[in-house]
Amino acid sequence: MSILVDNNTRLLVQGITGSQGAFHAQQMIQYGTNVVAGAVPGRGGQWAVGNTPVFDTVHEAVATTDANTTIIFVPAAFAVDALLEAADAGIDLIVCITENIPALDMARARSFLDSTESLLIGPNCPGLISPGTSKVGIMAGHIHTPGNVGIVSRSGTLTYEVIYALTARGIGQSTAVGIGGDPIKGLNFLDVLQMFEQDSGTEQVVLIGEIGGADEQIAADYIRTEMSKPVTAFIAGQTAPPGKRMGHAGAIISGGEGTAAEKIEALQSAGVAIARHPEEIAELAAQNI
């Protein structure tokens, strides 16, 4: 069992004819993901990556192939248009890999998405994978192994590092979700933790956070009050210099500076085991089995 993607995933690739889109569509097909269509304006009627049909619009792709999930590889200037098109076409799950989307564009897009049934993961994220069944993302499939540890992370390569350590210890994963590091995004820690709590195939959860914002603190509240499954966490950026990313007025609104120490304290007080380095996550997770 898993969350969000599985054998029922019918994947559309928006931007399938671009170099990133084509490469990763190929990788996902090789992993066993059911890639049913591509969408690229002006390329309708063509075939991409072997025998994947390409449509001009997401609506046509959905009508013809029953795609229920999409992954977006289009450049930042067109990515918001692409994800709004997917939501308008009734896609259940939208995964946006594109980085450098202006934050105010995401604020507007998210406001619209909240009025639809579509879920968004990203932008600026590696996507997600349910090992052994479906990969909707850009992560290397071979480092994963099926199992029952759920993973949710704001980071890309740091997540691979953790999964690599888990797999090396023989600890498999139910689903690994990279929610991305942008200030305004789709699913956050809280949403994904709720899904893992409900999922019968997930027995424990690993949370990988980083400095900035208050998503980890919000997650800690949920873990303390609602969650029955054990959680292990790592927070990156304990030695990062303050103030390099964002002006101070943002920190006031978030009710704090969003430092690693603050997040670690909140998680610890919610009973979360904190790893000092990524490899230690695997040791701590092993104790929960």
Partner: peptide, 22 residues
């Protein structure tokens, strides 16, 4: 030198953990 911001921050943290400074 690291690929990925999260991993880069984590690498800095581990350097500190083992007594060095990035």
């Amino acid at each position: 030198m690291v690929n990925g911001a999260g991993l880069a921050m984590a690498t800095m943290d581990i350097i500190k953990l083992y007594g060095g400074n990035p």
